[in-house]
Computed example of a mutant assay.
Amino acid sequence: MSAPSRPPVRVATFTLSDTRTLDDDEGGRLLGALLRDAGFDLVAHAILREEPTLLTEALSRLCDDDTADAIVLTGGTGIAPRDRTIEALTPLLDKTLDGFGEAFRRLSWDQVGPNAILSRALAGVMRGRVVVALPGSPKALDLAVNQLLAPILAHAVALASGRGGHHHR
């Protein structure tokens, strides 16, 4: 007897940039395509200026509306003065998934060498949703989706939402 199938994971994405538009948002388009190819249901995409209050409001709205099971951000994870995604996101997280950032940087090392340590990619849980912050480069997005998110996101969403297998009664 086979296990009951779960509905596809609903994923919303954001590109965080002060300069991108829908016309030139290559990273956002690639991220969406990679997630769809991995079997996820892309439910929304938007471009947000790198303003912490805009990110806080957008994430809160998605959680309030129960629009997405997971939220994947691209951009703003470096160390440049305008890179403020991590500072805006961290206080919103109920739990952090430290292994995600560690694994991302380890795998990135093979592609870009020591520059991998300049990435502050991270993942965590906010109000029962998995939230992931990724760099904006196409190579980074491909690596993150195919080597990290595709294998674990459905399970992580099930656990974070309380629908997974590690319940304590």
Score class of each variant (00 low, 15 high):
Ala154Tyr: 00
Gly78Ala: 06
Pro138Ile: 05
Leu54Phe: 11
Asp41Gln: 12
Leu149Gln: 04
Pro114Ser: 15
Gly78Ser: 03
Leu34Cys: 12
Thr90Tyr: 04
Ala68Glu: 01
Arg61Ile: 05
Gly78Leu: 06
Ala38Gln: 03
Leu89Phe: 13
Ala33Cys: 06
Asp65Thr: 14
Leu153Val: 05
Leu148Thr: 10
Lys95Gly: 00
Thr74Phe: 04
Ala103Trp: 13
Asp83Phe: 09
Val132Gly: 00
Leu134Met: 09
Ala158Val: 07
Ala88Arg: 04
Ser161Tyr: 01
Gly136Tyr: 13
Ile79Cys: 11
Val145Phe: 06
Glu102Gln: 12
Ala103Phe: 10
Leu48Cys: 14
Ile79His: 10
Gly101Phe: 09
Arg61Tyr: 03
Asp41Met: 12
Asp69Ala: 05
Gly39Val: 08
Leu141Tyr: 02
Glu87Asn: 08
Pro135Tyr: 13
Ile47Tyr: 01
Asp65Glu: 15
Phe100Ser: 06
Asp110Asn: 14
Ala68Trp: 01
Ala156His: 00
Leu141Gly: 05
Ala33Gly: 10
Arg106Lys: 13
Gly101Tyr: 11
Arg163Thr: 13
Glu51Lys: 09
Asn115Phe: 07
Asn115Met: 11
Thr67Gly: 02
Val43Cys: 04
Leu141Asn: 02
Asp66Glu: 15
Thr67Leu: 11
Glu57Asn: 07
Asp94Asn: 15
Phe104Cys: 13
Pro135Lys: 09
Asn115Cys: 06
Asp64Trp: 07
Ala88Tyr: 12
Arg127Asp: 15
